[in-house]
């Protein structure tokens, strides 16, 4: 039977356009570098006000991206804002990975009731949108960064936990863990030495995507005035502080941090999708 080849269209545009991947990696590296070297590269201190120069448009000498309503330099604030904006979601992903790997492996190794309890618990957390859980925690503990980071870590745990559990159950059914056990190696040794490295690429892909979503959630929280408290600032709180200036015809104070969020998240999705896509291709070959 002949197959209409024109109807079969692969959606692996990533493979054909590696420049998209490189642009994403470059953007993420630049954002991380901006956070690290903010004191060296920022033209002004992030909190320095210059009331004579409030709402200066981009291109003003000394203020390449303009100033906000109290005359603070937008470029400097975006560079400094990268620190909290990137560190907090990193904390979420690391905590969620720790929780997810522990719970997933426990469920897979013990099986039976432990597996049912962990899996059902993850289903319940799954019914909670991350931002809602974070707001609930803020209502109890007051605004800040630590409590929302913990709450979001809990709400991102099921994504990693399910992945680890299913992969561990699958890998456990293959011959090699049993072979190691026969050779006298303990179950924990097999898990740490062989199982985790085997599922590491999948974990990294999921972690990259979760990083992006956590960044959006935390920025949203700060935008709503429930996250970072002044004088500390991240991109979300910068947007909310500059939003009233939009109506005065000065949108740059909100647009620049908004584009920083957008660029970072797009880059994370591209990189995460690429890692995930290459796993699928590898899986097809074996």
């Amino acid at each position: 039977m002949t197959v209409d080849l024109t109807a079969v269209r692969g959606r692996s545009f990533r493979a054909r356009r590696p420049w998209g991947l490189w642009a994403a990696v470059a953007f993420l590296a630049a954002a991380a570098l901006a956070g690290l070297c903010a004191p060296l590269v920022a033209p002004q201190a992030p909190g320095a006000t210059d009331l004579m120069n409030s709402l200066a448009p981009p291109g003003t000498p000394g203020h390449p991206l303009g100033t906000d309503s109290t005359g603070r330099d937008v470029l400097s604030r975006v560079l400094y804002g990268a620190r909290l904006s990137l560190l907090a979601p990193l904390g979420v992903v690391l905590l969620a990975s720790l929780l997810g790997i522990t719970l997933g492996l426990t469920a897979a190794r013990l099986g039976g009731w432990a597996d049912i309890v962990v899996s059902r618990g993850m289903d319940v957390v799954f019914a909670f949108p991350g931002l809602l859980l974070a707001m609930l925690v803020v209502a109890v503990f007051g605004p800040g960064v630590v409590a929302p980071v913990c709450a979001l870590a809990v709400s991102y745990t099921p994504f990693i936990g399910r992945l680890v559990r299913n992969a561990a159950v699958q890998e456990g059914a293959r011959p090699y863990p049993e072979a190691y056990r026969v050779m006298g190696f303990g179950g924990l040794w097999v898990t740490v030495r062989h199982l985790l490295p085997n599922i590491a690429p999948m974990l990294i892909a999921q972690g990259t995507l979760s990083f992006g979503y956590a960044l959006v959630d935390l920025a949203a929280l700060s935008y709503l005035g429930l996250g970072v408290r002044p004088p500390a600032a991240d991109w979300g709180s910068m947007i909310s502080q500059s939003q009233s200036a939009i109506l005065q015809g000065a949108p740059w104070g909100a647009l620049v941090p908004g584009l920083a969020v957008l660029g970072t998240v797009v880059s994370l999705i591209v990189v995460g999708g690429h890692i995930g896509g290459s796993i699928v291709k590898k899986g097809e070959r074996t």
Binding site: F13, I239, L247
Partner: peptide
């Protein structure tokens, strides 16, 4: 067309509502 659409979809997926709101307002 497919490639352009998938780029548009990827950017849209990554756009948080507050960023979209700021752009639409401006």
């Amino acid at each position: 067309v497919d490639r352009a659409a998938s780029v548009l979809a990827a950017v849209a997926t990554a756009t948080p509502p507050f960023v979209a709101a700021v752009v639409l307002l401006s």
